[in-house]
Design a protein around this nucleic acid. Structure first.
Lengths: 384, 384
DNA sequence: CTGAAAGCGCTTACAG
DNA sequence: CTGAAAGCGCTTACAG
């Protein structure tokens, strides 16, 4: 019925709306056709009166008001939100500053979960939510031009030039998964503790050769790309090493990097498995998305989880419990992280004065499911 | 290490930034401390010069420019994006108008997939993506106040008062999953055809008692709530009935409604199963999210899919193929739907003149996996 | 290459 | 309850 590319029907625009351009060419100056003045004139009142009709009904008689609204209706007028912005100074939108493109970010269900959490608060307070990806590679320009009432950053380590650009905007700012600080509001989870618990679990099971699949650095800041590492990554790495260390010096640790999505995790794990040398008996993945991908790679390579290899994720996204086998992971309260950040944001938006900087740290917990077991041939646990 | 509610450290704001409010109280008029004038004065140039330094480097000597930027830097100045908006008239953001709250919308992976598709185009063109949920229950106010360069609606049947509010904004508008029209740009998939294929598949397998789990009406417009039905729902319903009809008049059809997420689908299916009377031998779910939930409900009630009951979804989200058993479903090109809508949007944003209204219709295809089989005890297919 | 001026479309004290 | 006026902070022809 339809060709490969779908079918397109085209209709010429009709008379009524056909005459006026829907939007002027980017470069050309455009005048609005009908403004407050038009309406005021037509209704025989002052411009203030029509403004009052919309924003301060109590300042005006009900009759006048309805007459004005009536005239506006027939003229097809509604107040230009951009113009009013200059006075009211609030956009009724909060921005989520991301470290990577939207498409890449939403490849990890973590992002969806976080946005849902923010969304709940936005919905309650009648706010829009603006996704702010790096504009053409850099976040600086994004920060400078974002039309929002406040910014929540996710995964951004607020180093210069970001922090200075952010501060310059004099906008409420909450830094999630950035770094703790005494000069901005931060929301974090106990990444180190969670990673520790995961690694200690592996060590206790008897694993002595484990691979860590860490986050690759976000490409968002070309200067930092694959040079150093975000705070969260560093914390988890520290936790992993501390946990593995309880088995003594004997543990062999290798580390590779992956973007946090299933396909990348799968690719990274495949590469690891195809590498010369012995295969690790367990892997610590920095996200469930990566872990899920790693499980697929194992499957493809004929390795059974957890019999041949153990895998632990991080996040506890809904998909983790549903995987086959169900994934052992470090649970973090994703939605709560988002709502706490939003709560802070709402306070900042209301408050005329600066608030004491809060550092919120939420707990993480290891959830042991079925993707982890003692290493094959480990006699100490053979009975288990 | 941490209490149930996490731990909060509080720091007093420091001197440097502590003095000035991050944001003025909503109601109070706020003046910016440092504006073009401040910078112009400090640099000994005109205000136009400092504007040129940012927007038209070629209009000004390189020396002057760097001096101005230097002064701006030390003054902590950057141009107010809101003020410049009134002149430039573009926000560099496109809006996604949703029919339900953000949290509810993202409960269906379909939404994530669609946003990723839009995001890809936004990323390429340096645009932000503003999620526009109904503001306090109604989309009209959202439409009136959205600060965006164009609006893509998803799932909204553009009836008054929405359409008139939308037209009044004179913004580029693309209606996805709304309804075809000759007065707006629309992007749809062949819902009727896809639904038909799904139902015909069931009929051919021998099912004569099927349940349809349809979308409930979005609560977004109180007047339409649970009274009538969106175009997409109507189309799929029509396709289902046409497909089922190939088996003759004998087929018993029942219909229930559900929000499009796993939990709701599960609840709806449970209710159906716990109802008095005979259980249908197959179910047609309007989304994979609902179908996945229905599968869980069957599992809970001791029904095996597809042996005891067949289930077909709609969308072909990534999760569908991974389910146990893999879900038979109607595949629609979610990402392409989004990118086509964005492509149209970008054209509209560039074009000074109105473009002929396009109706884009993308194909759907039935993907037969393992959640469908002949009904139990159906002799005609017993050998299969 | 620069400066004084007008203007973007609205809101909001202020005086009636 | 209303009207004339100032102003939000910037950009952009225009004349030098």
């Amino acid at each position: 019925m339809f060709g490969e590319r779908g079918c397109i029907l085209t209709t010429e625009p009709e008379g009524q709306h056909g005459g006026e351009p829907l939007r002027a060419k980017r470069s050309r100056r455009k005048r609005r056709s009908v403004t407050v003045s038009t309406v005021a004139k037509a209704a025989g009142v002052s411009r203030a009166a029509v403004s009052f009709a919309y924003n301060a009904p109590e300042q005006i008689s009900a009759d006048t008001r309805s007459r004005i609204l009536q005239v506006a209706e027939t003229l097809g007028y509604s107040p230009d939100p951009i113009a009013r912005l200059l006075n009211t100074r609030h956009t009724d939108a909060v921005g989520l500053l991301m470290v990577e493109p939207i498409e890449a970010a939403f490849a990890d269900p973590f992002t969806t979960a976080f946005v849902r959490g923010m969304g709940r608060m936005c919905d309650q307070h009648g706010l829009a939510l603006t996704l702010l990806p790096p504009r053409l590679g850099s976040s600086v320009r994004t920060i400078q031009t974002a039309i929002v009432d406040g910014i929540i950053t996710l995964g951004l380590t607020p180093e210069s030039p970001f922090l200075s650009a952010l501060k310059r905007r004099h906008l409420p700012l909450v830094v999630v998964d950035g770094a703790p600080s005494t000069t901005w509001h931060s929301v974090l989870v106990d990444d180190e503790g969670g990673a520790y618990a995961a690694a200690a679990h592996l060590a206790a099971l008897g694993h002595r050769h484990v691979a860590i699949i860490a986050f690759d650095s976000p490409p968002e800041d070309p200067h930092r790309y694959s040079r150093d590492v975000t705070y969260v990554t560093a914390q988890r790495l520290a936790g992993y090493h501390r946990g593995l260390a309880i088995a003594g010096e004997r543990t062999e640790i290798e580390q590779i990097e992956s973007h946090s999505d299933i396909a990348s995790g799968q690719a990274a794990m495949s590469q690891l498995l195809e590498r010369a040398g012995t295969t690790p008996t367990a892997v610590l993945a920095m996200s469930d998305a990566i872990a899920l991908g790693a499980m697929r790679a194992c499957d493809q390579h004929g390795l059974r989880v957890p019999n041949d290899i153990s895998i632990i994720g991080f996040d506890n996204i809904p998909e983790a419990a549903l995987a086959t086998p169900p994934l052992t992971t470090v649970s973090q309260p994703i939605a709560e992280k988002a709502t706490r950040a939003m709560r802070l944001m709402l306070q900042l938006m209301e408050s005329p004065d600066p608030l004491p900087f809060e550092q919120i740290m939420l707990p993480t917990t290891l959830i042991i499911r079925e993707s982890t077991a003692p290493p094959k041939g480990d006699l100490r646990h053979a009975g288990k």
